[in-house]
Each structure stands twice: as C-alpha cells, then as structure tokens.
Design a protein around this nucleic acid. Structure first.
Lengths: 100, 100
DNA sequence: CAGCATCCTTAAGGATACTG
DNA sequence: CAGTATCCTTAAGGATGCTG
C-alpha cells in the first residue's frame, strides 16, 4: 500500500505501462492536474521502491526517460484484478461526483 | 483506490474476511493501534461503499456485527495478487523500519 | 527541458472525554 | 458495549517561482 499510496502513483504506473520510456514532460501532459513537484517526488519514491527505472541522458537540453522495472510491470499486473473490480462496480458513494 | 484508501481499510477487510460477523470490540482488538473514531468512520465508509454489511441487534448490552458483502469478498480476492506482490518483494525503501 | 525550493491548504488520522 | 463529539497534529499534495 505504501508503494501505491500516492494520489497519482497508479496513474503514473499505468502511463508508464502503456508506453515505456516516457519523458518527464510527456508524463506531465498525460496526467492533467499534476504538478512538477508531485510528479518528481512520486517518480523518485517509485524509483526508490524499485518499480520505476530512470535513465538520465547527459545532453543539452536535458533528457530523462522513465520506464517500469520488471517489478513495476509485475505490480501493474497485480493491480489488474483491483482495476477490474473497480470497473464493474455500480459506483457507490459519491465517487462519480469527482469523476464528472 | 478511494475504497481502500484509508490507512486501515485493507486490514479491516482482511480481518472481516478471516472471520465474518466480527463485533466492534473484536475488530478493535484485532487492529492494535486503531482508535474507535477511525474504526467507526472507516466502517461507515466501507458500508457506504457496499463492501461491508452491518447488522445491529436491538439488545442490551448493544451488539453490532460486521461482515463483508459479496462485493467486499470480491474486493478482498482482487487484492490478493497485490498482497502476493508485496510479500515476494525484498522490502525496498524504509518500509521495514515501520514494520519493526 | 527537467527539476528543486519555499510556502500554504486541507483532510486523514490520532487523543481524549462523554453517552445511550 | 458500541459508539459520538471535539480538538489537535501531521504530512500529502498544491501553487508559484527559480535554476542548470
């Protein structure tokens, strides 16, 4: 739970799974509403947790790419049943209000 | 994620799965460190989310029993792959510090 | 472009006391 | 026994601005 505890962690995981080697700016655009700070800190935590692999190219302009590690891919897989559970539910409580 | 978002939600789910028809006091004892307020509010949210079923017996002394709904059981099942993932990991970051 | 520093808001969770 | 009420702490997340 700690590993996926952040507000955006599973979304990052998902985005990275859909397309490996995402760049920071791309990820930002993929996650409407996230701030650089939050994206950066989540990415760092996920790297420390061993689910995200970070590759920094020593160029100008700077380029950094992120991808899931094998463990990250496994985590994503392990999350699928949960995602399926959420998808098939008739949306209880006030959750749909936020979804719009 | 909203449904399992609370700090103790999955633990409650787990306790309820191990033994249906738990009582409030039992749950409290099963979850060392939880306060009445948090247990009560989590239970209420989980009831609103349709994963927990609450039965109140009109007796003296008061008796209330909690159990998982079918959807709650399915949620617990959907969480198993995630639990397995967490179990097989070599405990990255500082997670073991909290576990003691 | 990729990120860090700083400040601020807010809501989850905790402590304690009280009630039918 | 099974909660409710109130107050408080803390840390996640957000806004904004700056840097190599």
């Amino acid at each position: 739970m700690e590993v996926i505890g952040g507000k955006w962690k599973v979304l990052i995981l998902w985005a990275l799974h859909e397309h490996p080697c995402r760049r920071f700016g791309e990820l930002r655009r993929l996650l409407p509403g996230i701030t650089e700070k939050v994206l950066a800190s989540h990415l760092r935590e996920m790297e420390a947790d061993g689910v995200v692999h970070r590759v920094s190219y020593d160029e100008v302009p700077p380029r950094v790419e992120y991808a899931l590690t094998e463990d990250g891919v496994r985590l994503n897989d392990a999350l699928q049943p949960l995602a399926a559970w959420g998808r098939e539910r008739p949306t209880a409580r006030g959750l749909e209000e936020k979804a719009g």
